[in-house]
Amino acid sequence: MSEDGSLRVETTGETVGEAKWSALRELERLHPTLDKSAVRFQVVSEGERGLLGVGYAPARVVAVVDEDAIGPPVEESEAAARARELVRRVAEGIGVECRIDVREDDDAVHVLCAGPELGLLIGKHGQTIDAIQYLANASARRGGGEAKDVVVDAAGYRDRRRATLETMAVRSAQQALREGRAELEPMTAIERKIVHLRLKEFPGVETSSEGAEPNRFVVVTSE
C-alpha cells in the first residue's frame, strides 16, 4: 500500500495483455473484494518479441487501484480473531516465524501455520502444538461459554498424525485378534477418538480407554 492509500503492483508478461492479466490476478489475490473496473494500468514497456530468443524483453505493466475500490477486508469472527492472536503470540514468544491463516466452518475454527521451520512449534510427538491447541480452546471457553472447537495445525501435521494413528490402530487390532489384547501408547482425547473411530467397523475387535490423564490409552480387545 503506498502513501496515498492506493495499491500498486508491477507485473510482466509476453505481451501487454498478459502482463495486465497477471496484474489483475495479483490484485485479486491480495484483495478478493476488489472492484476490477477501478484498476488503472500504466504500460511501462511494450516489450520486444525478439528473434529466436535474442533481444526478447517482457512487456511491463503497473496496475494501480484506489483504496476506496478495494472494499472492506473480509471480517473475521471474534472467535477466529482471538484464536489467531493467541497462536501469533505463542509463535512469536517461542521464536518461530510463520504465516497464520484462519478458516472457520460450522464445526471449528482452524488456525493454520505455514513457514520454513515449524518443528519447534509442533514439538516432540506434537506436544507443543497440542498444548497451544488446548490453551486456544480454554481461552475460547473462558467463563464457561459455548464455543466452537479450535484446531491448531502446522505444515499439515494433523493429517500426518491422523495417518500414523490409523496405521497404529489397525496394527493393534491385528495384534488383538492374535493375542486377545493390545495397548496403544498414551494419547490425548482427540487422538484416542481417531483410534476408536478407525476401529469401530473393524471386524472382531472392541476398543476402550484405560488409565488416568495424561497417560490414558486405548485398549483393543478381541470380541
Binding site: G93, I94, G95, L135
Partner: peptide, 18 residues
Amino acid sequence: QGRIARALRAVVRAGGVR
C-alpha cells in the same frame, strides 16, 4: 487434572529452546 498448567509448561519449555 492440571492440564492447563501442563500446556503452559509445554509452551514455556519450547520457548527456552531458541
